[in-house]
Simulated assay, not measured.
Amino acid sequence: MKSMTPFLMFEGRAKEAMEYYMEIFEDAEIRYMREYDEDSPEMQDKVMQGVIRIHDQLIMVMDSEVPHEFSFTPSMSFFIECNSLPEIEHYYRKLKKKGAIHMPLDEYGFSNRFAWVQDQFGVTWQLNFTK
């Protein structure tokens, strides 16, 4: 195997999501972005293929040209091990904005601080901090 990379398919908001993640994660970087060309006027300014790096993780993204009946589901999520309470609180505050809370930031038996949130794009994030 050469590599294995998470791939997120959006419905028209991939560029917005990548920019949003750049604001949240200070070490994020858009590595590559190719937009659809003029041959697809309904897809103008939409991402045909993109790659964002968050910390050491590459994530591929795209906007689907084809409408579909499915979206993201909480059964697949990104799990982030945080270094500090301020870090987990920062991610929690930012990622839940205009999103949903599956498990509020709190102390649980398996973690000193844990939260499970869905961001405004439907992507879910599990945040964990253990002393």
Rank of each mutant, 00 (worst) to 15 (best):
D119V: 05
F25T: 04
E89D: 07
A100V: 10
I30E: 00
L95G: 02
M43Q: 10
G99R: 03
N112T: 11
L85F: 03
M33S: 09
D106W: 10
D27C: 06
M1V: 08
N112K: 13
A17Y: 07
K46F: 08
S40P: 06
K97M: 08
F78S: 12
Q49K: 09
G99T: 07
D119T: 02
E19C: 06
A28E: 03
E23P: 05
E69S: 10
H90K: 14
G99L: 06
F70T: 11
Y91G: 03
K98W: 09
F72R: 04
F121E: 05
P104R: 14
R93P: 06
Y21W: 08
E107T: 15
E11Q: 14
R113N: 05
G12C: 11
K97T: 14
T130E: 15
I101L: 11
T5P: 00
F79C: 14
E29F: 04
D27Y: 05
S77P: 08
F10P: 00
A14R: 05
E35S: 11
M103G: 07
V117Y: 05
F114S: 00
P67V: 09
I101S: 12
P86I: 03
G12K: 07
E26Q: 12
F25A: 05
H102W: 15
N112G: 12
W125H: 01
M60G: 03
Y92A: 04
G50I: 02
Q44G: 12
K15T: 10
P104V: 12
Y92W: 10
F70N: 13
R113S: 01
E23A: 10
H68F: 12
V61N: 00
Q126G: 07
E11A: 10
Q49E: 13
M18I: 03
K15W: 04
I88N: 00
I80E: 09
S84E: 05
P6N: 08
R53D: 03
K2A: 13
D106N: 15
R53V: 04
C82G: 05
S3E: 13
M76I: 15
M103L: 10
T73G: 11
V117K: 06
E42D: 14
Y36L: 04
I30L: 00
V47I: 13
I88S: 01
K2E: 12
E35M: 10
H90S: 09
P74Q: 08
G50F: 00
V117R: 03
F79V: 11
V117G: 05
M103V: 10
A14I: 06
L127C: 07
D63L: 00
L85T: 11
P86G: 07
H55A: 14
M9L: 13
L105N: 03
F121D: 01
S111W: 01
R93C: 12
I54V: 15
Q126S: 11
A17K: 03
G50H: 02
